[in-house]
């Protein structure tokens, strides 16, 4: 056996690894959250639209909830906004906003201009609820079932992704 074949074999193996990695590329866009299958973290935070009131996550138990992390400095959030309005129209879930690292006045202005898809918007100025949700950017979306368990997480929503991936998760169990 020719020992000089070893480099070629190692190289071949690497090409295979790269190849598999390339093939998996599209799936990687959905970063798996460590929280899938676990109870959604509880939070109790100031309400953006009703000064003085608090948004309590416990209040949404028993319904399908889409927790949407957003901020006015986030470009993708603006692109995502019409999809959220559309989802609200469909009425399959309620959307709870988590306003991430933002200024209240900017956020109110944004909703006044673009429309408000949210059942309630919690202000997470300290970023603590965001840490509990494992958030590190915006937008992020968590789908929480009526039992309060996170069943899916994704980045920015597109109408397609909502229809083909997330909606079946809801309908599969409500049918």
């Amino acid at each position: 056996m020719n020992r000089f074949i070893i480099p070629l074999l190692v190289f071949g193996l690497l090409v295979v690894v790269f190849g598999i990695s390339l093939k998996h590329a599209p799936e990687k866009q959905v970063v798996k959250s460590a929280l899938i299958g676990k109870p959604a973290p509880e939070f109790s935070l100031p309400d953006l639209l009703q000064p003085g009131a608090t948004v309590n996550s416990a209040a949404f138990k028993g319904r399908w909830v889409l927790v949407n992390v957003w901020a006015t400095w986030c470009v993708e959030c603006r692109a995502e906004h019409p999809t959220l309005l559309d989802i609200k129209q469909q009425g399959k879930v309620i959307i709870v906003g988590l306003n991430y690292q933002d200024k209240d006045a900017d956020a109110r202005q944004w909703l006044a201009e673009l429309g408000n898809p949210y059942e309630a918007v919690a202000v997470d100025r300290e970023g603590r609820a965001s840490i509990d949700y494992g958030v590190y950017g915006a937008p992020e979306n968590f789908l929480v079932n009526p039992a309060g368990v996170i069943v899916h997480k994704t980045w920015g929503l597109t109408p397609d992704y909502w229809r083909t991936t997330m909606l079946p998760l809801i309908e599969g169990t409500t049918k």
């Binding site: 460590a34 949700y133 494992g134 590190y136």
Partner: peptide, 12 residues
Amino acid sequence: HEVRQYMVDRYG
């Protein structure tokens, strides 16, 4: 260890 575990629980 507790700090690391706290972060892993949330972020993986």
